[in-house]
Each structure stands twice: as C-alpha cells, then as structure tokens.
C-alpha cells in the first residue's frame, strides 16, 4: 500500500483568520445535499460582483489550477461550524491543508471527511511560502512517515495526533467504531437513568 496521502500542486493562500463565511458564504447553505459545493468555495473572493472570475484571487491564477494542497496561515476555518466548508474545499480538489493553526470545529469536520490537516510552526509555514514564491510547487505528503516531500530528497516533517493518523490511514468508520462500544453506551444510560432520573 502506498503511504503517499496526496501528491499534488500547492496553492498558497497568504491570509490569517480565514473564516468559514469566506470559505463558503451563507447563500450556499440552504442545500439539503452533501454535494455540489465546489463552485461555492471562496465565492465572494473568487468571483466579482457580476459573477465573472476575479483575476486577482489566487485560486484563479493559471498556475494554481488543479491544486490539491492548500497552504495558508493561522486560525484557518474560524467561525461557523458549517461542515459545508470542508465539503467545498474537498469537492474543489483540496485533500490537504497546511497551516500554522486551525479552528477546532473546522479541524474535526475536515478529519471526519478524510482530509489531512497539517499544523506547522510559523517559521516552517514561512519557509513553505518562500518555496512557493520561487515558482509552482508539486509536493508529496507521506502520512505514514509524516513528511512533506519537496523532491530532490528535501523534506519537512510534521506532527499529527496518533488517533487521527490511524483513522486517515485505515479509513475507519467514524460511527461504526463508536458503535463497537454499544454495550457500554447502554450501561451508561442505565446508570444515568438511575442516578439522575431528571435527565430523561
């Protein structure tokens, strides 16, 4: 089995505090489907008021078409809990997001959709932006060895929670693995009912 999680083109989004209202604005949240959000990604930045692509937004640059790794800065995904944000990123083509930090709910939502979110120090993020400034970059992300490989034997390591790594590598069923504790859930409910009957 290949240990390469993703191999692809990087798109640098040089912004801090990118909130989920920017990732996917509210007018796209009325859908009852889990699909069809790629076009909505970064909508207000990506398109001008007349609906045409904004040539100044990095996702629209010709050299970043087909990118699958997003490089950004601190506190990415802050704000609303809308899972439509990782859906939109993933459906657009991003499998990996590298940032200095992520908002908690966004992080969980992304992992629950099988995306890899890599958190690096400010210094390392700066180094990666510097690499991008030298021209378009194709990197390989090896999750098993926890490395971003730049080619020519150059690489940068990253840390990841052991549980999340396991889930991403083995594709564990999020609900199914909790259901394995079914008898403990039932036992907890019985004890809860007996000791605090007002909880329902």
């Amino acid at each position: 089995m290949s240990t390469i999680f993703t191999s692809g083109l990087i798109c640098p989004l040089d912004k801090n505090n990118v909130d989920t209202d920017q990732i996917i604005p509210k007018q796209f949240l009325t859908s009852v489907s889990r699909d069809g959000f790629a076009e909505a990604l970064f909508y207000d930045w990506r398109y001008l008021a007349d609906g045409s692509p904004n040539p100044e937004f990095v996702l629209n640059y010709p050299q970043y078409q087909g990118a699958s790794i997003l490089l950004t800065r601190a506190n990415f995904g802050c704000g609303s809990s809308r899972e439509h944000a990782p859906w939109a990123l993933q459906q657009y083509g991003f499998q990996v997001i590298i940032a200095e930090s992520f908002a908690d709910i966004f992080f969980n939502n992304s992992v629950n959709n099988g995306m890899l979110l890599i958190q690096l120090s400010k210094t390392n993020i700066e180094l990666l932006f510097n690499r991008c400034a030298q021209g378009s970059q194709h990197w390989q992300i090896d999750l098993a060895s926890q490395e971003i490989m730049f080619g020519n034997n150059a690489a940068m390591g990253f840390n990841i929670d052991a549980d999340i790594k396991q889930r991403l590598l083995s594709g564990l069923d999020f609900i199914g693995s909790s259901e394995q504790l079914a008898s403990q859930i039932t036992a907890y409910e019985q004890q809860r009912k007996a000791s605090m009957p007002w909880l329902g």
Binding site: S81, N109, N112, F174
Partner: peptide
Amino acid sequence: IGTSEVEH
C-alpha cells in the same frame, strides 16, 4: 459540532 458529528 459539524454535520458528520450530528449524524454520529
């Protein structure tokens, strides 16, 4: 929580 967690 997100929608996957709502389902959970």
